[in-house]
Amino acid sequence: MTTVLEPPAIAPVTAPVTAPVDAPVGALTAGRTTARTAAVRVLLADGHHLFRSGLGALLDREDDLAVVAESPTAEEAAAEAARTRPAVAVLDPDLPGPGGPATAALIRDRAPATAVLLLTAQPRPADLQRAVADGIAGVLLKDVPPAALISAVRELARGGRVYDPRLVVDVVRSGHGVPLTPRELTVLGHVADGATINEVAAALSLSPGTVRNYVSAAIAKTRGRNRCDAIRIARERGWL
Results as ranks from 00 to 15, higher is better:
residue 141 L to T: 10
residue 141 L to P: 07
residue 141 L to D: 09
residue 141 L to H: 07
residue 141 L to R: 06
residue 141 L to F: 08
residue 141 L to G: 07
residue 141 L to I: 06
residue 142 K to Y: 05
residue 142 K to Q: 13
residue 142 K to W: 05
residue 142 K to V: 04
residue 142 K to R: 12
residue 142 K to H: 01
residue 143 D to Y: 14
residue 143 D to P: 08
residue 144 V to D: 01
residue 144 V to Y: 00
residue 145 P to G: 12
residue 146 P to Y: 01
residue 146 P to Q: 09
residue 146 P to A: 15
residue 146 P to S: 14
residue 147 A to F: 08
residue 147 A to D: 15
residue 147 A to T: 14
residue 148 A to C: 09
residue 148 A to V: 12
residue 148 A to T: 14
residue 149 L to E: 05
residue 149 L to W: 03
residue 149 L to T: 02
residue 149 L to P: 07
residue 149 L to D: 03
residue 149 L to I: 02
residue 150 I to R: 15
residue 150 I to C: 05
residue 150 I to H: 08
residue 150 I to W: 04
residue 150 I to S: 07
residue 150 I to K: 10
residue 151 S to L: 13
residue 151 S to N: 15
residue 151 S to T: 12
residue 151 S to K: 13
residue 151 S to V: 09
residue 152 A to C: 07
residue 152 A to F: 06
residue 153 V to Q: 04
residue 154 R to H: 04
residue 154 R to K: 05
residue 154 R to M: 02
residue 154 R to C: 04
residue 154 R to I: 05
residue 154 R to P: 03
residue 155 E to H: 15
residue 155 E to F: 12
residue 155 E to A: 15
residue 155 E to G: 13
residue 156 L to M: 06
residue 156 L to E: 05
residue 156 L to I: 02
residue 156 L to Q: 06
residue 157 A to P: 14
residue 157 A to G: 11
residue 157 A to H: 11
residue 157 A to L: 11
residue 159 G to E: 01
residue 159 G to M: 02
residue 160 G to N: 04
residue 160 G to L: 02
residue 160 G to K: 02
residue 160 G to R: 01
residue 160 G to T: 03
residue 162 V to N: 08
residue 162 V to S: 13
residue 162 V to K: 05
residue 163 Y to Q: 10
residue 163 Y to M: 06
residue 163 Y to E: 11
residue 164 D to F: 01
residue 164 D to H: 02
residue 164 D to M: 02
residue 165 P to F: 00
residue 165 P to I: 03
residue 166 R to P: 01
residue 166 R to I: 02
residue 166 R to Y: 08
residue 166 R to K: 09
residue 166 R to L: 13
residue 166 R to N: 04
residue 167 L to K: 00
residue 167 L to P: 05
residue 167 L to A: 00
residue 167 L to H: 01
residue 168 V to D: 08
residue 168 V to C: 11
residue 168 V to R: 12
residue 169 V to I: 11
residue 169 V to R: 15
residue 169 V to P: 00
residue 169 V to K: 15
residue 169 V to Q: 12
residue 169 V to G: 10
residue 169 V to H: 10
residue 170 D to W: 08
residue 171 V to A: 10
residue 171 V to D: 04
residue 171 V to M: 05
